[in-house]
Simulated scan of single mutants.
Amino acid sequence: MHEKEKLTIKSWALDDRPREKLLSKGILALSDAELIAILIGSGNKSESAVALSKRILKESNASINELAKLSVEKLMLFKGIGEAKAITIITALELGKRRRLETALEKSNIHSSKDAANIMQPIIGDLQHEEFWVLFLNNSNKVVAQHQISKGGLTATVVDVRLLFKRALELASVAIIICHNHPSGKLQPSTSDKNITQKIKEASITLDIKLLDHIIITEKTYFSFADEGIL
C-alpha cells in the first residue's frame, strides 16, 4: 500500500464493510465500533476505520457514555481523527441523547421518582459540573416545562429560590420536582442539598405549590428524597 493511501471502507474485505453489513443484515448486527466507523469513513495509514474506532472505544472504557464526554480537542488526539470527524462523532452522540430525552418527555406524566429521573438523566447525568433543574407539573402530574435554574462547579451550584418560584407561577404549576446532578457519582445528599431542599419546601408551602421530590442524578442511577422519606 502506498504510504499516503488511506484505508477507506471501499478497500476493505466485503465482510469488514459496515455499510454493506448494515444493508444486508440490518443495523442491529453492527457493533458500536462499526457504527462509529461509518461515521468517520476512513482510518489512518496504519489502521482501518473499524480498527481506529475500536481503539477509541477501548480508551473510553468501551463505553458510549464515556465517549460522549470527549471534546473535539480530545478526539483529535487520536491519529486519523481530524476536526470534521470529531464533530461528526459528537453530533451523532448528541442526537442519540436528544432522542432519548424526547422519548422520555413523550411519556412525561410523573407517577414515580423513576419517571422524573428518566427525564433528567439524559440532560444532566453525564455532566462534569453541577446543574440544578426544576420540572414544573400541572394538576395531572404532567410535565409542562423543565428549566435550568443554575449551574456551577464540580461540587456545588447556587440556587435562586425566587427565580424558581417566579417561573412556577408564570407556568401556573401546581407542583414541582427539583433535580440536580453529582458529577462525583456520589448519591448521598450533602448538608447543602438538604438545606436548599428545606428552603424550597418552606417557600412551596407558602405559595401552595407542592414540592413532590428532590432527585439527585448520577450517570448510572439516582437518589430520591421522597422515596427515602426525608423530604
Rank of each mutant, 00 (worst) to 15 (best):
S190K: 05
R167P: 04
S60N: 06
I176W: 07
E83Y: 13
V50N: 01
L231G: 01
D208R: 15
E83R: 15
E228T: 11
T157Y: 12
H2E: 14
L163G: 15
S112P: 05
I110G: 00
V134M: 05
H129A: 10
E47S: 04
K166D: 12
I177Q: 01
V50R: 03
L93T: 02
E47F: 02
G96T: 07
E66L: 09
L101Y: 14
E73L: 12
T191G: 09
P122G: 02
K166T: 14
L77I: 07
L93F: 11
L39H: 00
A168N: 01
D193H: 05
S11M: 13
I196A: 05
E66F: 10
S112Q: 07
R98V: 15
H182N: 04
A156C: 10
M120I: 10
D227C: 07
C179L: 15
I87A: 09
D213A: 01
G96V: 13
L23C: 04
S48E: 03
K6Q: 08
G153P: 04
G80K: 01
T221F: 07
K6Y: 11
V134H: 00
I149M: 12
C179I: 15
L57T: 08
I200C: 03
N181Q: 07
E83P: 07
L14E: 10
V143Q: 03
T88P: 04
I36T: 01
G26W: 12
K45F: 11
